[in-house]
Amino acid sequence: MEKTIARPDRTAMPEWLMDEDEYVPQSGGDTFINKSILAVLGVISRVRNQSMTEDSANSAGAAVKLLGTLLTVLYIAVTKQPSFLKFVLVYELIVLCLMKPEIIKKILKVSAAAASLTFIVMLPALLWGNTYSCLTITSKVFLTITAVNMMSFTTKWNGITSALKKVHCPDMFIFVLDITIKYIVMLGDLVLNMLYALRLRSVGRDRSKYGSLAGVAGTAYIKSQEMAVEMYHAMECRGFDGEYKAVVRSRFTKGDAFSLLIYAGLTALFVFYAMM
């Protein structure tokens, strides 16, 4: 039996649909959307990467790292001896050189940017002949930012919250930090989807860029209100009263011991140079 294929009748098509359309959209309309998408994606991926940081058996616990980093930053800020800074620099370089290239790049990018900004701010001091303070402050900024970033890039977010609990940080503070990080990702996802939608729907030049972005921001705000209410209900249902309980890791790892040894060494050096 012969199959008959139904063909649309060409003559039945309305006249206006046959006309050639000469609409050429003006270019350059969605650069701002793309930029916003990239910025939001950058933040979200940063947080997500953080939670996927692998905890190797040799790395120190988050509490040790947190305290050690705070101590290092304090020493860097207080010391008046450039030689002590050299020791800290060598310590940071050694830790850095053992990390993955991508992470080294990210850490150094941030510290280099901060250090060069400081250098520019301190440039007048250099021109007036005060080389010492210009170089010391620039290197202190570099070392501090590197130390903090080294911790943040090698520790999971939940590791940091549990470390904060271990050092008896108020629950309120931990709660705010925890929720902030989680909601950056959730709201970020929401904003990202809205931006995609905006990009798909915008053709040609957008004459009200601020309006579009304000719409996205406003929707995100309303949504965040709803989420907050929902979260409160969820907290009630589960009986969460805002108190965090850290599951204490009983085991004292090799990494902990090694890090403690290094921080003790730094402390000894700091005291030695402070007494000089």
Binding site: K86, F87, V90, L93, L96, C97, P101, E102, K105
Partner: peptide
Amino acid sequence: ILSAAAGTAILVIIFKLISS
């Protein structure tokens, strides 16, 4: 020792960055 460690670390970092 400090100089040797610093030099070694910097060289490894430089070439790791180039490889990335």
